Amino acid sequence: MVIPAEVNVVPVTKISFSFCSIAGCDKITSIVLPDTIDELKVSICYGLKNLKSITLPANITYIPPRMFSGCESLEEI
């Protein structure tokens, strides 16, 4: 799953929901966040048992508690 840097010409700078709330979340195996993201408001990966990798932008300074809880397949951050 690749998160776009912008939606309708508006930069994506924050994520305020967990990907586990998306239907079919059990099929998510990788997440790539754009460099425009500067804040994660929730543990976006919590419970994604098939997630193998996530690419975080360099400017993230805070990772919410339990961000990777339940990510039993995670191999690479």
Rank of each mutant, 00 (worst) to 15 (best):
Y46C: 11
F17K: 13
K27R: 09
K27G: 08
E39F: 13
V7D: 05
I77L: 05
K14L: 12
Y62L: 14
T55K: 15
K49F: 02
S30M: 03
V7N: 14
C45D: 02
C20T: 11
S53I: 10
F68T: 00
S30G: 07
D26Y: 05
T36A: 14
P57H: 08
T29F: 06
S18W: 00
A5V: 02
V7Q: 13
S21V: 01
I77Q: 02
I54V: 14
E6W: 12
E72K: 14
L56A: 12
Y62D: 14
L33W: 02
T13Q: 13
Y46H: 12
C71E: 04
Y46M: 11
P64G: 11
P65R: 10
K14M: 02
L74I: 01
V7C: 13
E6G: 08
A23N: 08
L74A: 05
A58I: 07
T13L: 13
M1W: 01
T13P: 04
P64H: 03
N50F: 03
F19G: 00
K27Q: 04
M1H: 11
A5I: 00
P11C: 09
G70I: 03
D35Y: 01
K41Q: 11
F17S: 15
P11I: 05
I54M: 06
F17C: 13
I60L: 15
P57Y: 04
E72P: 00
V7A: 06
C20A: 13
I63T: 05
S30P: 01
P65S: 10
E72F: 08
D35I: 03
P4L: 14
I15H: 15
D38Q: 12
A5R: 12
E72Q: 10
I3L: 14
T55E: 11
L48P: 00
V32Y: 04
I15D: 06
I15G: 07
M1E: 08
P57V: 02
S21Q: 09
S18E: 08
S43D: 09
N50A: 09
V12M: 07
L33I: 08
P64L: 02
L74Q: 01
I37M: 09
K49S: 12
S73W: 05
L33G: 09
L74N: 04
V32D: 13
P34N: 10
S16G: 08
P64V: 03
M67E: 08
C25Y: 10
E39C: 13
I31A: 04
F19M: 05
N59I: 12
N59M: 14
C45H: 03
G24M: 06
T55P: 03
G70E: 02
T55F: 12
D26N: 03
C25W: 02
N8Y: 09
S21T: 03
N50I: 03
A5F: 08
I31D: 06
I22K: 11
E72T: 08
I60Y: 05
A5E: 15
E39K: 14
V10D: 11
V2N: 07
M1S: 10
E75W: 12
T29P: 03
K52W: 01
N8E: 11
S43L: 04
I60W: 09
S53W: 07
S18R: 06
E6R: 12
E39W: 10
P65Q: 07
A23S: 08
T36P: 06
N50M: 04
T61Y: 06
K41C: 02
A5Y: 12
